[in-house]
Design a protein around this nucleic acid. Structure first.
Lengths: 230, 230
DNA sequence: CGGCATCCGGGAAGATACTG
DNA sequence: CAGTATCTTCCCGGATGCCG
């Protein structure tokens, strides 16, 4: 009496051959893209996703993970003992959605209503660095920058005018930023000097300070779109 | 008692500084992106949008246009007399969302569940040509191809390995395809020769036939993503 | 007819409590 | 920790009707 609609995929679809419309059929439901975003830096557990996606309820998260799995975007995996925990991760094709976040994020950053002071997850922060770094300013520099957000760490690899972020140890990084994600975002996109954040005890910098100063200058938020006046 | 929420933008937002999340706040509601898609080739009237967006209801279309206008993505314009009709068009920033469709569409076209035989609008067809043309095959060719879909016509300009489509007259085109959008899509992405569609009376080709044959060979659908087997 | 408001039914999203 | 069950709220879709 309770599982009468197991077979039908979902009633509410666009019947449209357009690729973008099909994309919306796949990931257009609420929270779906943000779930994928949190998986873009590697596998995560249910509880991690629920914690990082501020505001999602458990039942909706369950539904989205089921839907994304049915679409071939997400797969469930059981880590081998002794961990033996279940994790969710993107399929190879799921990872290929990476440019969607870059393009959508870059466009939306020009919105007059975008508020960069809202909370931001660790993965979002790293992805925004990938998206917003100025290739021009980076030139042909090669560098590895580390980030410690509480108990998880990331590294940003700069090479060929591009930044690639990974969830990995900060060893071998020229400089390491230890701070909440929002502080890293503020340091990178704001115009206050790093010393302000350090003085407030929000940020710690280990390693080469010159590299740190150079790094944060690689980023700037785009100009806001003009508001149409009529 | 009935207009208590005029001021508040919308209750259901992600409170997230991530650019992609804000993008979803802007255009994540149902039909919003597809409305933008239909506007990407220039201004359109309410009725045109309703007709091209198969399945949208008038009240939802009204809501989306209002929301997109409030966000600075769409603007309303009154054509000068004697036309004196109201049209909706994208703002400059709205047009900048074009890459979102390209990236999302290209990704979704690899979906195992994508069905190219569904109905497709004229604008979608032209945008898919922009998205899917092989720059490699096009080389440094320069060409102008015309399309007539009922009472509206488009031209595809090929240059520098890119295709740009516009709503314009088919004059000065080397070859003109006259057919429903779905037939153009089938001719371009399918593997049947053009003569099959002509024999069925679905397609008419005017102008240089060699160019027509060359043109349809510039396109191919991407390989489907592998379905994870467990 | 084009544009928009209103009413209603179904279903998706959100919040909370509960279970193994 | 990883979900499930339940209840409420509200969005979406369809129909109808008003008005210029």
């Amino acid at each position: 009496m309770k599982l009468e609609k197991v077979t039908e995929k979902s009633g509410r679809r666009y019947h449209d051959a357009c690729g973008a419309a099909h994309g919306l059929d796949l990931v257009g439901e609420r929270w779906a893209l943000l779930v994928m975003r949190e998986l873009m830096m590697g596998p995560r557990r249910f509880g991690d996703l629920k914690k990082d996606l501020c505001g999602v309820s458990a039942n909706v998260l369950t539904q989205r993970l089921e839907g994304l799995e049915a679409s071939g975007i997400v797969q469930r995996r059981k880590l081998p003992p002794p961990a033996s925990v279940q994790v969710y991760e993107l399929t190879e094709w799921g990872y290929e959605a990476h440019p969607v976040f870059a393009v959508l994020g870059r466009w939306a950053a020009r919105s007059p209503h975008h508020d960069p002071t809202l909370p931001i997850s660790a993965v979002s922060t790293m992805m925004s660095l990938e998206t917003m770094m100025s290739a021009e300013k980076a030139g042909n520099a090669v560098a590895r920058i580390g980030f410690v957000f509480g108990d998880e760490s990331f590294a940003a690899h700069i090479a060929d005018g591009a930044l690639k972020a990974r969830r990995e140890s900060v060893e071998a990084a020229a400089v390491v930023f230890t701070a909440p994600p929002a502080v890293v975002a503020a340091a990178v996109y704001g115009d206050q000097p790093l010393s302000v954040f350090e003085a407030d005890g929000l940020l710690r910098i280990d390693g080469d300070r010159r590299t740190a100063e150079w790094f944060v200058d690689l980023f700037a938020l785009p100009e806001k779109a003009e508001i149409a006046v009529r």
